[in-house]
Design a protein around this nucleic acid. Sequence first.
DNA 1: TGATTTCTGTAGCACCTGCTACAGGGATTT
DNA 2: AAATCCCTGTAGCAGGTGCTACAGAAATCA
Lengths: 183, 183
Amino acid sequence: MTLRDDRREAAIERMADHVLAEGLGAATLRPLALAAGTSDRMLLYYFADKDEVLTVTLDRIATRMIAQLDRAIPAEPRRSFAVLLQQAWAELASDSLRAFMPLWLELASGAARGLQPHRDVAGKIMDGFLAWTTIRLQPEGDGDPARLAPLFLASIEGMYLLTAVGRGDLAEATAQELVSRSQ
Amino acid sequence: MTLRDDRREAAIERMADHVLAEGLGAATLRPLALAAGTSDRMLLYYFADKDEVLTVTLDRIATRMIAQLDRAIPAEPRRSFAVLLQQAWAELASDSLRAFMPLWLELASGAARGLQPHRDVAGKIMDGFLAWTTIRLQPEGDGDPARLAPLFLASIEGMYLLTAVGRGDLAEATAQELVSRSQ
DNA sequence: TGATTTCTGTAGCACCTGCTACAGGGATTT
DNA sequence: AAATCCCTGTAGCAGGTGCTACAGAAATCA
């Protein structure tokens, strides 16, 4: 029992590494099993089917990502829009989180087509990121603390996408413009 | 000669429809050929290989999209950030352009992983959209006409991505916030 | 000890992938 | 009429996909 759980757990960790490195396109049973140090036969013994393998693996990746973000940028103190934007953007470009970008866009495009588990996982991640942001953003003067969060998310995601298509310069220009405007 | 070109042309149009509807995941030779009313054998007679099929098809889609955007929102007169944002966002949500969203994200995620033809096509589309925006945005007071364009693009793309993962409400909140801020 | 349950490798299924060899029909050129 | 070309269907290749049947080894229970 515990042995089985241990191996299942180890497989998840190594599959998470593989999916982060290679993307969902390469997330087929045999390569996943190879990365996990086992066989496709055993993967389907640990998990019901490929869908469960993917769901569990993506969940693990999302957990890792949020943990990393929490560690790098603690909840207290609250920060201005400009400061949090710069900190979050720098963190997302760091070695440990950069690999997440192509996967995140892959999830988003799958979600846009209504695929599972893309839709559920992507929605969950976005909700987590919304909560993460809301708790860290300092409300502007009189305003509602949650008013700025959507704009913050959209800005980060937009810069993300600009970077993905090789227009990182536009992302930087966006960050500059946002910072100079919110001060 | 001309006959061959006609059939090639017709195939491109129908494959563009198919890719818009089903995505790149379903863009394999046999389904593409079926959609084009021919056989995989003939597709590889008209085009060198699958890569050329995809490149030509995606180019056609990009051309269609820019044409549609030009038609819906003419170059003159220049518009304020808020007005152009609302017009462009409404147009991207229209029947004719909505189908482009999942494909665009698919291109972006492929580009983020360095795949071809994703990278080239996505970059080209983004450059086209940047030019489109720059020409239509009214500079703010003293400012450079091109200063606002990156922020505009990032905003649209961010709202796009929020919508893709089922958080259209956050996209709307972002639009509202941007409009109220730029006035 | 024997019986039963848990694990796991081998082999295979039916289907899809991009792509190609071959052959024949039809039109065009000599 | 003969020879040459352009077109296109049939069949197939080698490899990959998710998944499963079967059987034997290993561990657990009686």
